[in-house]
């Protein structure tokens, strides 16, 4: 059994790493033709492009980060109360609320993009940072509410009441009782929100056009260009910040009090 387990784990490690290897190597390669296992020449061409102001990549990095961070905060603001209502209360129309809040994850985005584009233009939100943030918020809502409703459904409301009966003010009840209990859900919901916004292409293109340049927009313009070296470099620029996010949230993804448990009860 342990041999089998080792094989499974080894397969897992290889399966995850393998497709990242060529991307990583290409980022620093000049020529790399078949059948050579190693590049024929190394080159920093793509990196000189990444740091070239005309490439707009650093600007996009900043934009993407600002947008994703704002989306995450907004998503917490709207998602935590919704998660609380769904996780803790039984109320009329609850099923409908749940279906509505989940639908952005179930209905293919291309069904709604065309219509949303017209709405955003009509209401003066297109080509604005606010519009991009708002449109990114939509697909994060299902993930945030699911994570939050899960932790709230395990949350015993009597704790809050006890704390209050012992004289704690609402703010300190929230800080010392509620927050620690639901924190793992918030971290997981926030991580998903950040990553969904960070990787968003179609919605950004539709609302932000070219005025708001984000990393996925630049990555996509190279996706079918066949410039493997640039694709590799851009992928690294893309992945490193999201790796940091994962490092920060990793321990909340698994473990007894995992915020991921919620997706089991979608």
């Amino acid at each position: 059994m342990t041999v089998l387990k080792r094989i499974i784990l080894l397969g897992l490690v290889i399966g995850v790493i393998l497709p990242m290897i060529p991307l990583f190597v290409w980022a620093f390669s000049g020529s790399w033709f078949y059948p050579s296992l190693l590049p024929q020449s190394l080159s920093l061409r793509s990196w000189s492009y990444v740091f070239h102001p005309g490439s707009r990549i650093l600007e996009a990095l900043f934009n993407s980060f600002f947008i994703a961070a704002s989306v995450t905060i907004l998503s917490l603001i709207v998602g935590v109360p919704a998660g609380k209502a769904i996780g803790m209360y039984r109320f009329k129309g609850k099923t409908i609320v749940e279906i509505i809040l989940l639908s952005p994850a179930l209905i293919p985005s291309m069904t709604v993009t065309m219509g949303m584009q017209v709405l955003f233009i009509r209401y003066g939100l297109s080509e604005t940072l606010m519009g991009v943030i708002l449109v990114h918020l939509i697909p994060t809502i299902p993930y945030m509410t699911v994570s939050m409703s899960a932790v709230f459904s395990h949350f015993d409301i009597s704790f809050e009441e006890q704390a209050r009966s012992l004289g704690a003010k609402s703010l300190s009840t929230f800080r010392h009782v509620t927050l620690p209990a639901v924190f793992p859900g918030m971290v997981v919901g926030a991580m998903f929100s950040f990553l969904i916004s960070w990787g968003q292409y179609v919605l950004t293109l539709m609302v932000g056009g070219g005025r708001i340049v984000t990393l996925p927009l630049l990555l996509y313009s190279f996706a079918v260009s066949g410039d493997n070296s640039l694709v590799g470099a851009l992928s690294l620029v893309f992945i490193i910040p999201s790796l940091v996010i994962l490092v920060l949230s990793s321990r909340f993804l698994t473990g007894e009090s995992s915020g991921m448990g919620g997706f089991g009860g979608v």
Binding site: S103, T111, M114, I138
Partner: peptide, 9 residues
């Protein structure tokens, strides 16, 4: 936004 866009679609 979402269902509005869906409706228009």
């Amino acid at each position: 936004l979402f269902f509005g866009g869906f409706g228009l679609g």
